[in-house]
């Protein structure tokens, strides 16, 4: 048996791996430039910033958390419409600062809007909202008819 020289990662040994690498790199490039632009503004796909959210569910409630740094309570507007939760508002610039005094602006300002389809019907009159340290927490109680029901089946 003859010995074959070991070549690491050459396209000869595994041409598909190179293709996969290329694809991965391209994906990374696109992810970076379109979706995860850290500066929030002027991307090709949508020029808006929208808050990141988490949704948790229990038997009786939905719990929605959103990261909204740098806002005040009055700048956030929450509504429930046709089983969609709408979080919107406007982020205002620090008004005491004049434009020419900025060295760097990376933070996003302007209006934002986010709609979240809720997984079950909620009672919009009983929504409880809290805003603390830039995090918005919403507790949305489910409607009676949306709660899971246990039906006992009698076996004869």
């Amino acid at each position: 048996m003859s010995l074959v020289p070991y070549r690491k990662n050459t396209w000869l040994s595994d041409p598909f791996r190179e293709l996969e690498n290329l694809q991965r790199e391209m994906n990374r490039l696109f992810d970076f430039s379109f979706a995860n632009n850290p500066f929030g503004e002027t991307t090709l796909l949508g020029s808006q910033w929208s808050p990141s959210i988490d949704i948790h569910e229990s038997k009786d409630n939905l719990l929605v958390k959103a990261d909204l740094p740098g806002l005040t309570k009055d700048e956030i507007e929450i509504s429930v419409q046709d089983n969609n939760l709408i979080i919107k508002g406007e982020k205002k610039k620090e008004n005491e600062v004049q434009e020419e005094n900025y060295y760097k602006t990376e933070r996003f300002y302007g209006s934002f809007y986010r709609t979240i389809q809720l997984p079950s019907e909620v009672d919009e009159n009983k929504v409880n909202a809290q805003y603390k340290d830039g995090v918005l927490s919403l507790t949305l109680p489910k409607k009676e008819n949306a709660k899971p029901k246990q039906i006992r089946v009698n076996i004869k």
């Binding site: 005491e96 005094n101 900025y102 060295y103 933070r107 830039g134």
Partner: peptide, 25 residues
């Protein structure tokens, strides 16, 4: 995460303002 930051002049100081939601103080 690198927090988004604004840097500006204000009176006698330079202010860094960093967006960091929900931080444990």
């Amino acid at each position: 995460v690198l927090p988004n930051t604004n840097i500006y002049d204000q009176d006698k100081s330079i202010v860094l303002s960093l967006e960091m939601a929900g931080v444990d103080k």
